[in-house]
Amino acid sequence: MAATLDLNHSSVSEFILVGFSTFPPHLLPIFFLLFLLMYLFTLLGNLLIMATVWSERGLHTPMYLFLCALSISEILYTLSITPRLLADLLSTRRTIAFAACISQMFFSFMFGFTHSFLLTVMGYDRYVAICHPLRYNVLMSPHGCACLVAWSWAGSSVMGLVVTMAIFHLNFCGPREVHHFFCHVPPLVKLACGTHVPVVALGVGLVCITTLLGCFLLILLSYAFIVAAILKIPSAEGRHKAFSTCASHLTVVVMHYGFASVIYLKPKAPQSLEGDTLMGITYTILTPFLSPIIFSLRNKELKAAMKKTFLRKLYPQSS
């Protein structure tokens, strides 16, 4: 990835990540332990979801195929940011090489966009299941589902590459201190020099916001049709059963876009470094941490399958 970009145009060979530098030193080990536990739980939760779906034939459906793809993207997204964050919490030298910064930005954007695309695909899956149940097996065939997942990954790769190349073709000739805990666009743009920096920053911002807003509007459109279809179901039990299949997905969507809007759409008012860091933590650590919990607890079918799989591992003689 780094080799595809021309690094000779910049006089900066490394950056200094100062996201946690203003926090009291005695709090950093506490943050390290807390974030480490959350990171391990995120990995464990997503791996447990994937293992359960893999082992239970009853879960070999499009909805759970997309959930597995979502778990993979969350694991890879946290892997691109959190290990480096944990290392910096215990280090006094928080430098990151120019090439490593490029790689981190590319992978964080790639897997972040993958998450948004897959949530959109999952919304479409719920729309087809509730609004067109008789055509579900045709519209959501194994080949069609595989194509949707593949296009999600391909599209996110292109988006990550476009954003990363746009930012790192700027000149970085001044200060090296990145006011964040990873290589994020806004603090890096502030370090760039040249007359075309505002144009690049505006272009990257419009591309990201348009893409995310487009995904969100497609999800809203899917749920508008879903709600209309559910309201036509005569029995209260039928309406509750239909909506319960969407509850976990809808909760994750609200959380995902809620935290993202706080970070990316906040007004450009003076903000402390501590405030920016804590807001970034909500999206990069808290959201992936909560996502497997929500899917596990609010999806009755998945929760029952997890209990069955877990008990079978503990008591193999009873299966």
Score class of each variant (00 low, 15 high):
residue 185 V to M: 13
residue 147 C to P: 01
residue 149 V to Y: 03
residue 23 F to P: 00
residue 138 V to I: 14
residue 133 P to N: 07
residue 238 G to W: 12
residue 228 A to L: 12
residue 190 K to Q: 15
residue 160 G to D: 08
residue 216 F to A: 08
residue 317 Q to G: 00
residue 84 R to K: 13
residue 81 I to R: 03
residue 232 K to C: 12
residue 172 F to D: 06
residue 166 A to N: 10
residue 256 H to M: 07
residue 123 G to Y: 06
residue 50 M to Y: 02
residue 187 P to K: 11
residue 188 L to I: 10
residue 282 T to V: 01
residue 108 S to M: 11
residue 49 I to D: 01
residue 305 A to C: 05
residue 73 S to A: 13
residue 145 C to T: 15
residue 256 H to E: 04
residue 202 L to F: 11
residue 57 R to N: 09
residue 312 R to E: 12
residue 132 H to Q: 15
residue 29 P to N: 12
residue 244 S to A: 15
residue 210 T to E: 11
residue 250 L to Y: 11
residue 289 F to S: 01
residue 225 F to V: 02
residue 165 M to S: 12
residue 23 F to L: 11
residue 189 V to K: 06
residue 223 Y to D: 07
residue 294 I to K: 01
residue 59 L to E: 05
residue 317 Q to S: 11
residue 281 I to W: 04
residue 199 V to F: 12
residue 203 G to K: 04
residue 186 P to L: 09
residue 279 M to Q: 09
residue 265 L to W: 08
residue 19 G to Y: 10
residue 40 L to H: 00
residue 254 V to I: 15
residue 152 S to I: 05
residue 18 V to E: 15
residue 307 K to P: 01
residue 212 L to Q: 12
residue 289 F to C: 01
residue 69 A to I: 04
residue 48 L to D: 04
residue 105 M to A: 06
residue 189 V to F: 14
residue 155 G to T: 09
